[in-house]
Design a protein around this nucleic acid. Structure first.
Length: 220
DNA sequence: ACCCAGGGTCATA
DNA sequence: TATGACCATGGG
């Protein structure tokens, strides 16, 4: 059964975990960005990188009037790399941002993407060198409001701790599994992933009142 | 001083 | 399919 879903995963459990995190932390109002384009840039810059460093890089781009498809496409890779230096992997990410922007430029406008079917849209994004499954799903969900369930390291850790997955499943298997258990609700997926990240940052204070433990062990 | 963060690519087996 | 090397800054 290569195309099934994780055995322990089901709608009721996923909705209960969601509700507990929502009760504990409240709405997260993601993605922290002013425009869809800024979401896309941030999605690339945050690859294996702390968000605080990404903010510095994005600030640099804004300060230099360079947070646009044209600016990024036209400036030299070396200059772009220098602007995004705080986000780490700056040479790699400069190339990836330009790949993304060249692709966007080949589209008419960002709005013309609105007509694309979500799976075709996803394939297009994945064809860009430097855009992998998680970055593509961040973009689809948070820049274009498509109902895709983002699988990241935090998602794997949480659901592994809860004993619902083993953590080594392929990306697409997990994504399909989660999406199969839930309605294709963009708003739910948006908040769900944001809450998982919020929860991951929560430190355990080691008592019954510890919100962290209550969420980590929802069935104790 | 050490560890790793809101991954992805490429080479290799 | 699955490992491993590689990319690099800055906060805790």
């Amino acid at each position: 059964m290569a195309s099934g879903i994780p055995e322990q995963l089901n709608r009721d459990i996923l909705l209960e975990i969601y509700q507990r995190m929502m009760d504990a932390y409240g709405p997260q109002d993601w993605w922290p960005a002013d425009t869809p384009f800024e979401v896309m840039v941030g999605a690339v810059l945050t690859q294996n990188t702390a968000w605080l460093n990404v903010e510095k890089a994005i600030d640099n781009l804004k300060q230099n009037d360079s947070l646009s498809v044209d600016a990024i496409t036209n400036m030299s890779q070396a200059r772009l790399a220098n602007l995004i230096r705080p986000s780490g992997y700056f040479n790699v990410k400069a190339r990836r941002l330009q790949n993304l922007c060249r692709w966007l430029d080949s589209m008419d406008t960002i709005n013309s993407l609105a007509g694309l079917d979500t799976e075709q849209f996803r394939s297009q994004l994945l064809s860009i060198n430097g855009i992998g499954p998680e970055t593509a799903d961040d973009i689809l969900l948070y820049a274009f409001n498509r109902p895709v369930f983002v699988i990241d390291a935090y998602t794997r850790r949480l659901f592994t701790k809860l004993g619902l997955i083993n953590g080594k499943e392929p990306y697409e298997f997990l994504r399909y599994g989660f999406e199969s258990c839930l309605d294709p609700d963009e708003s739910l997926y948006n908040e769900y992933h944001a809450l998982i990240v919020r929860h991951a940052k929560q430190k355990c204070i080691g008592a019954d009142e510890c919100i962290h433990c209550l969420v980590e062990r929802p069935f104790h």
